[in-house]
Design a protein around this nucleic acid. Structure first.
Lengths: 250, 250
DNA sequence: TCGTTTTTGATTATTTTTGAACAAATTAAA
DNA sequence: TTTAATTTGTTCAAAAATAATCAAAAACGA
């Protein structure tokens, strides 16, 4: 076993497990501990891993350029629940849209091993899925640094060139009476673009967003086929949506 | 058994198994180890395989798939020199292309505070420049995980919609006789697309790439206006380029 | 056929990689 | 704070792989 091969395997292990030990690697790669140490030192000086006493760690935490602006942390339990449900809907071979919402971002970890194609305008989603089984298609256009996503006219045109089985979208507000609403027009534009090119539109929104109206009201409820939410959602409210022919998962 | 035949079989084996050993090949192809070594050396210089001690690997497996922050570490002094020169050429208000080379990536740190617009197909460049003064425009299309960049037909079309003052591009090889060459056709396509939409094409390449021919030769030297390289570059070689009307910075 | 060129193989010297031993440094525990 | 246990850096030697040189064999063209 030569260095490039070991390097590849070590890197893969570090990525998977987060951290590794010298002994563990020496055992696994059938070589001496000192050789492993040398490998780790070399890799660390290249910035590939973070060297620790007795092993190495994923550099990702420090290097991974952008963490999702911590919005992911709030309400995380409910969001994971929503994402688990949504992930179950995705079959191998499908093409899906994912927009730049924080809930939608959480979906990444549940679909890493699916053989699907994801079309997205979210930079964090691309970073997350780039090293996974998923094939990623990135929407081109102006980058909006605040939202860490691509938006605008060109972006919408790009989306219009594709067709997907499913679209997984986030919104800032949803109500039976006024439909979907958002904080900004640019986000609304992308949501519309993706929705109109997908067979089924899935809205991922935790229960705090139900029956709330925000700045821009941009689409009727009929745009969506499925709403995925958490168990805290009131049954009465959900019934409102179901009466309009929408499937509800919670 | 002649060289073309061995070459074909070796390539096939490398593709299948990911990595091969000299002994293994000598045994299988009924020839001596030294002949195999010669074959491997020749193939490696064409960029078909990655040479290792005792064998060879698939190119994709050897080049680290994640974080190419490491690649920037090798030859970093020379690369910084190149980037400093290149950065000085960029004036506020300009629009520039940046491709997905590792040298080009290093340019990011030198242009963070410029009021310019960058159009790029490189994910690391986007991550790096997203929180800076620079306005970023991302090229859309299929994401190539190995290169951490967007490539392909759609990507090239996207580039064709824009015009830039300058393009900063990396290549794998350059020679006075055969022009520009690359390891893969997809990279070559993006380079061409950007070059044809820019007023001035700047080639960022350290001296190790001068007078080297790689797998795909895709453009004549006349495509570029400026070559930026390091002080190690031989004056004789640079003169060759200057005679063809190219400006050389080093 | 002969002479030339190309390819292959063998030998030796050099380089690279690996492993072992031991002192120095770091961490954890008392 | 001191002691013990790990881990690491350093030096050296052995093993493996490579480069370089030269000779033999095969292929080629006249």
């Amino acid at each position: 076993m030569n260095f490039p091969n070991r390097k590849r395997l070590i890197l893969q292990m570090v990525e998977e497990k987060g951290s590794v030990e010298v002994k563990e690697l020496a055992d696994l790669l059938q070589t001496s501990e000192i050789t492993i140490r040398r490998d780790l030192t070399a890799m660390a000086s290249d910035g590939l891993i973070y060297r620790t006493h007795g092993g190495a760690m994923k550099v990702g935490l420090a290097t991974n350029p952008v963490q999702f602006v911590n919005k992911t942390a709030v309400n995380s339990e409910n969001k994971d629940h929503i994402c688990r449900l949504a992930a179950q809907e995705i079959k191998d071979g499908e093409v899906v849209f994912m927009d730049c919402g924080s809930t939608v971002f959480r979906l990444c970890q549940f679909i890493r091993n699916k053989r699907i194609q994801v079309i997205t305008n979210s930079i964090p989603v691309v970073n997350e899925l780039m090293q996974s089984e998923v094939t990623v298609n990135l929407v081109g256009g102006e980058v909006d640094p605040a939202r860490q996503a691509v938006h605008g006219l060109i972006a919408n045109e790009h989306v219009a060139r594709y067709h997907a089985h499913k679209a997984f979208l986030g919104v800032d507000g949803i109500s039976a009476q006024h439909g979907l609403s958002a904080h900004s027009e640019t986000e609304a534009g992308m949501t519309l673009a993706m929705a109109s090119q997908a067979d089924d539109v899935y809205l991922l929104c935790d229960s705090t967003k139900l029956e709330k109206d925000k700045y821009v009201q941009f689409a009727p409820l009929s745009l969506v086929q499925v709403i995925v939410t958490d168990p805290q959602a009131s049954a009465d409210v959900l019934k409102l949506y179901q009466q309009q022919g929408i499937r509800v998962l919670n």
